[in-house]
């Protein structure tokens, strides 16, 4: 589904992602963990086509994101950490805009507005929405077009507990349907519960990769993910 081969990104002299190799299959919820500045957001931005890799390849469902950008982008849904959307559109108009550029029908707009409890503010300008509401709106814009790959950068920041539970359930349902979910996350308890496989990265390199049990083995500990994370990152 997602295949990263020798992926490197340099900003001037600074290496943000260093020769990353990764393969994620269909229906997986894959979590990427790491300290601030480890290269998580850069990786997600490269997979979505927002950033150009310095070297290496990214393949999404058989499409190279650089060579077949349009085909790849049609099947990718991205939720950035700060999902800024056009402030002078209403919530409904934003979803119509998304349906338009992705060329999918607008019939499900009301259904998704209802699902994310945005129907009451659907005809107000986005500039009056809170951060969490804007995040839910962008998520509705992703789910409405049923992508095969969903990329999420810190997806639960700004959400209230009810919305957080709702989106967790949605991610699980999507995964069962065969959608691949690639997410960066800071909340370790959540990563432990939600992700089927995890990668811990530091200074742009993958330092550990596998299921939670495999990571525990690598860290030689039987404790929770938090202990695994600190044990693996403090050695780097």
């Amino acid at each position: 589904m997602i295949k990263l081969t020798n992926l490197t990104k340099k900003f001037k002299d600074k290496i943000a992602v260093d020769n990353m190799n990764l393969e994620i299959s269909s229906g997986e919820i894959f979590g990427i963990l790491g300290p601030n500045g480890a290269g998580k957001t850069t990786t997600i931005k490269m997979i979505s086509g927002l950033l150009k890799p310095t070297t290496g390849n990214i393949n999404v469902c058989g499409f190279d994101i650089q060579k077949n950008a349009i085909s790849a982008k049609k099947i990718i849904g991205l939720l950035p950490d700060t999902p800024f959307v056009y402030q002078k559109l209403t919530g409904r108009e934003f979803l119509e805009f998304i349906c338009g550029i992705y060329e999918v029908g607008c019939q499900k707009i009301d259904e998704f507005l209802e699902l994310f409890e945005l129907k009451i503010v659907a005809d107000e300008l986005v500039e009056s929405y809170s951060h969490g509401m804007q995040q839910k709106l962008v998520l509705a814009g992703i789910l409405i077009r049923d992508p095969k790959v969903i990329l999420l950068d810190e997806p639960l920041v700004g959400l209230d507990p009810k919305s957080a539970r709702l989106v967790k359930n949605i991610y699980n349902e999507q995964s069962k349907k065969g959608t691949t979910i690639f997410l960066s996350i800071h909340i370790l308890e959540l990563a432990e519960k939600l992700c089927s496989r995890l990668a811990i990265i530091d200074k742009g390199k993958i330092i550990a990769l596998g299921t939670l049990d495999e990571l525990k083995k690598q860290a030689s500990t039987e404790k929770d993910l938090e202990s695994v994370f600190f044990k693996l990152t403090e050695n780097v």
Partner: peptide
């Protein structure tokens, strides 16, 4: 912000959606 906005219901697809968005 504004509570009442004039409706501009133009069905658009592809790049034309960007055009409608820009006008609004």
């Amino acid at each position: 912000g504004y509570k009442f906005l004039p409706k501009l219901n133009i069905k658009s697809r592809g790049i034309f959606s960007v055009f409608v968005k820009d006008i609004k």
